[in-house]
């Protein structure tokens, strides 16, 4: 089954962007930009400022991908699912939260930070912001290719569980104290996948699954999400 790739969004050390926005996409090691609400949402947004950095980059890249696909605005909730691969999840938020527990012996743990100590919470923020009612989950896999989340999203569409899915990766830089233990490249990338392609927007081509489970982009094997995005965007 061919699935249309209809939107791309990202937050990487090189900057923010979406497929049709004209920004350059690159995912190389470095520091992520500090996102402001105005860079992500043109209108005031009470929730954005209090989110963890991990949640902000995940939510922002989903917002950009939906904008690119023409799906940012909505009036009724939609059964769109989200699957993201992550190596470290919300480890940075976990450390920030636990530091509110330690110094005071547990007397001042931050309930707001605790709410963001689940790796899937940014998906809940995206669900609220964009009215998305599909299945949402974070996947940990070997390596940082994001192939598992992309494959699972494609399967979910092929098996009739969802018509539209967001698939991507989301990671912050490894915390300084663990920098030698992990080699994660920070960034969040999401793509919008649809089983029913739009005839009004050009999109980026078609994804499908080979019989052995490998991911095909316009009929050719794609290694992972980052390589796929480079290929998609180089053709523009």
């Amino acid at each position: 089954m061919d699935v249309a790739l209809s939107g791309i969004g990202w937050v990487t050390p090189s900057g923010i962007g979406w497929g049709g926005g004209g920004q350059r996409f690159d995912l190389t090691p470095g520091a992520l930009p500090v996102l402001t609400r105005k860079e992500v949402f043109p209108e005031p947004n009470q929730r954005f400022g209090r989110q963890s950095e991990y949640s902000k980059i995940g939510l922002a890249s989903i917002a950009f991908a939906l904008r690119d696909a023409g799906l940012e605005t909505w009036t009724e909730k939609r059964p769109v699912g989200i699957m993201a691969a992550s190596q470290l999840g919300c480890l940075t938020t976990d450390l920030d939260y636990f530091h509110t527990v330690l110094p005071q012996g547990g007397s001042l743990p931050s309930p707001n930070l605790f709410a963001y100590t689940l790796a899937n919470c940014f998906m809940g923020e995206a669900a609220i912001q964009f009215g998305l009612t599909g299945s949402t989950m974070v996947i940990n896999e070997a390596g940082q290719s994001g192939a598992a989340s992309l494959r699972m999203a494609l399967e979910s569409i092929a098996w009739g569980e969802h018509d539209t899915m967001l698939a991507g990766i989301c990671d912050l830089q490894a915390p300084v104290q663990f920098a030698e233990s992990f080699t994660t490249t920070p960034g969040a990338l999401f793509m919008v996948l649809s089983g029913q392609p739009s005839h009004q927007r050009p999109g980026y081509g078609a994804l499908s699954l080979a019989g052995n489970g490998s991911i095909l982009y316009n009929g050719k094997e794609a290694a992972g999400i980052v390589e796929l995005l480079h290929t998609c965007l180089s053709g523009r």
């Binding site: 190596q87 470290l88 999840g89 480890l91 689940l118 790796a119 899937n120 299945s135 949402t136 989950m137 974070v138 996947i139 940990n140 896999e141 070997a142 390596g143 598992a148 663990f178 233990s181 992990f182």
Partner: peptide, 27 residues
């Protein structure tokens, strides 16, 4: 510190069982 990455746990389990692939789901 490697315990902080779920992948490490998957690798440990992969050494115990003859699995073809492994993922963790966090929902």
């Amino acid at each position: 510190p490697h315990d902080l990455q779920v992948e490490h746990l998957l690798q440990w389990l992969g050494r115990k069982y003859p699995v073809s692939s492994a993922i963790n789901i966090n929902a």
